[in-house]
C-alpha cells in the first residue's frame, strides 16, 4: 500500500509521566509502550482525561517525561536522563481545538513553517502553500482568515500547515472532536486521501471508536489514568476505505470487539471520577 520509506517510526518505551511530583502527584502515564511503524496510521483510543494528550505532548517535546524512552526512527527524543524532547518540524502537531494563527490567512498560516525554517523564500513558500491548499480543496478560501471559514476547513488547513513541513510523523489530537457525524465522515475520507498523496506516519488521538476503526491500521486502547496500553487491535480492513466500510459486517465486528475493551475502561474512569468527587 504505502512504501515503508514514508514517515518515521516511533517507539515509546515504558514511558511514565507524573504531573507535579512534589505536590499533587498526578500520575498521567504509567509504563506506557507503543511501537508505530513508519507510514502507519496508529489510533490512540482512550477515555477522557486518561492521558492521551500528555503522551502526545511528550512526543512533541512540549513537556518532559518522568521515566522511559521515546525514539523517532531510532534516534533518541527523550529518556529518563533527558526528559524533554527538543521540538521540531519532524513531528507536527494538529492541536485539540485547533491552533491556526487567527491573525494570518490560511495561506500565510501554511507558508509560515517553510519561511521561518528558511527552507523556502516567502514567495516560494506561498506558492507551495497555495498548491497544497488546492490539493486539499481549499484554494477558494486560501486568502481568508481562520475565523472566516468553517471548522472543517480550518482543520483541513491545519493539517496542510503541518504537512508542508514534511514531518516524519503527524500528531493529531482529537482534530474532529466537536464535529457532527456527517462532517466527520467527510473529514475522514479527506484525511485518507491526503495520506495517499503524501504518506506519513500518523499518531491520531481520539475517543471516538468508530473513527479509530475507520481510519486506523491499528487501534491502541489505553486504560484510564494513569494511562498505559491495554490492548492493540489490528484493523485489517482494506484501503482505500470509504463510508461504505462503515456498514460492512467486518466493521461491525471490530466495533463490538473494541467497544467491549473500551467500555470496561470508561466504566472505571467514571467510577474514579465519582470517587474523586465524593
Amino acid at each position: 500500500m504505502n512504501s515503508a520509506q514514508a514517515g518515521g517510526s516511533l517507539s515509546i518505551r515504558n514511558v511514565s509521566k507524573i504531573y507535579d511530583p512534589e505536590g499533587a502527584n498526578i500520575k498521567a502515564l504509567h509504563d506506557c509502550s507503543i511501537d508505530i511503524a513508519a507510514g502507519e496510521i496508529c489510533m490512540i483510543l482512550g477515555p477522557s482525561g486518561c492521558g492521551k494528550t500528555t503522551l502526545l505532548n511528550a512526543v512533541a517535546g512540549f513537556h518532559g517525561i518522568s521515566s522511559g524512552e521515546i525514539r523517532l526512527d531510532g534516534t533518541l527524543l527523550c529518556n529518563t536522563a533527558k526528559p524533554q524532547a527538543q521540538q521540531g518540524p519532524d513531528r507536527m502537531v494538529v492541536f485539540q481545538n485547533g491552533a491556526l494563527f487567527p491573525w494570518k490567512t490560511l495561506l500565510n498560516n501554511v507558508a509560515y513553517g517553510p519561511i521561518v525554517q528558511q527552507r523556502l523564500s516567502p514567495k516560494e513558500a506561498r506558492a507551495k502553500a497555495l498548491d497544497m491548499l488546492g490539493e486539499a480543496g481549499l484554494a477558494d478560501v486560501a486568502h481568508k482568515y481562520p475565523g472566516e471559514v468553517s471548522s472543517g476547513m480550518a482543520r483541513r488547513a491545519e493539517i496542510v500547515r503541518a504537512l508542508i513541513n514534511d514531518p516524519k510523523i503527524l500528531l493529531l489530537d482529537e482534530p474532529y472532536r466537536a464535529m457532527d457525524a456527517l462532517t466527520k465522515a467527510i473529514m475522514h475520507e479527506n484525511l485518507l486521501r491526503i495520506y495517499d498523496l503524501k504518506p506519513v506516519t500518523i499518531f491520531f488521538i481520539t475517543h471516538d471508536l468508530e473513527e479509530a476503526i475507520f481510519l486506523g491500521q491499528r487501534v491502541v486502547i489505553m486504560t484510564t489514568r494513569p494511562a498505559t496500553t491495554k490492548e492493540i487491535i489490528e484493523i485489517d480492513l482494506p484501503y482505500p476505505r470509504d463510508h461504505r466500510v462503515l456498514s460492512s459486517e467486518a466493521f461491525r465486528l471490530l466495533v463490538t470487539q473494541v467497544k467491549a475493551s473500551v467500555h470496561a475502561e470508561a466504566k472505571k474512569a467514571f467510577a474514579a471520577g465519582e470517587k474523586e468527587r465524593a
Binding site: 502537531v93 513553517g113 500547515r161
Partner: peptide, 25 residues
C-alpha cells in the same frame, strides 16, 4: 500556549516568535 507551541514546532526562533506570534496575538 498552543500558538507558541505550534510556532516553535514549525521552527520559529525567538525573533519570529515575538514579531509573528506574541505581537499579533
Amino acid at each position: 500556549i498552543r500558538y507558541l507551541r505550534a510556532a516553535q514546532s514549525m521552527g520559529a526562533g525567538q525573533w519570529s516568535l515575538f514579531w509573528r506570534v506574541v505581537l499579533p496575538a
